[in-house]
Design a protein around this nucleic acid. Structure first.
Lengths: 119, 119
DNA sequence: GAGATAACGATAACGATTATCGTTATTGGC
DNA sequence: GCCAATAACGATAATCGTTATCGTTATCTC
């Protein structure tokens, strides 16, 4: 993967937020610095970075969101405002007993509910 | 919601399998009994049944899968064959401590890894 | 059985994502 | 530093899952 300014800016922007944005949000943000950047470039780089393991793709509600934080953690999604919050891995303990003969790779946990702001 | 033969057949088909199928699979299956059924009908009824809480919509990899089993349980997804397996709720114990002020509605847990067949 | 209308089938429209293609930018060897 | 090779770009067309439209059919209520 050869260096590109656009990909670097995308990675910087994604790492600078905790909002788990989608491609459109990133595109809008990048256009401030790169007014001619193409939406295709955003999608291409999001896919490359995901495949390289530098970012994580989250799938909530049939559109992809992205997370620049690749350290293990879980998510909380508010059913009202659709915001996605992080849950530190230390706040959850998961105990598996019946997954016999299944080789566990990653654990994906999403708590759906209502966040403080929306109550 | 008025009765319809097509919706009833869809519900029967979905409840008869543990494969967590997508719309296309259900469409293909229904065409054996209803050769003229429309794909739009499948989608319309899947949405209605989901909204009515009679089935559950699962989102893995940007295409919707459906589950006729609405009793609480979790899922295991094989990264190799993409099959989705059920995990009984009794096999997992989840302990939340840091979700302060978040009103929990549902818990969505997916274990990604390699199933017995694919090892 | 008749009128009201939900649901149908066929198909067009939509929105997110991916592919194409000619041009531009990065890189490694001279 | 320059040049050739080519990865990545921007613009845009194509794809694919899903939703909306619309005239017709089936279900339900009286």
């Amino acid at each position: 993967m050869r260096y590109s300014r656009q990909r670097e800016a995308l990675l910087d922007l994604l790492r600078s937020t905790k909002s788990h944005p989608d491609a459109e949000w990133l595109y809008t943000g990048l256009r401030k610095e790169y007014p001619n950047i193409s939406l295709g470039t955003v999608y291409r780089n999001l896919r490359q970075l995901t495949e390289a393991g530098e970012i994580i793709e989250l799938c909530y509600g049939n559109i992809s969101h992205f997370d620049g934080d690749i350290s293990p953690h879980y998510h909380m999604k508010c059913n009202n405002c659709n915001r996605i919050y992080d849950i530190p891995i230390s706040s959850v303990s998961i105990n598996l007993s019946g997954t016999d003969n299944f080789e566990v790779d990653t654990i994906n946990l999403v708590i759906n509910g209502t966040c403080r702001n929306c109550q």
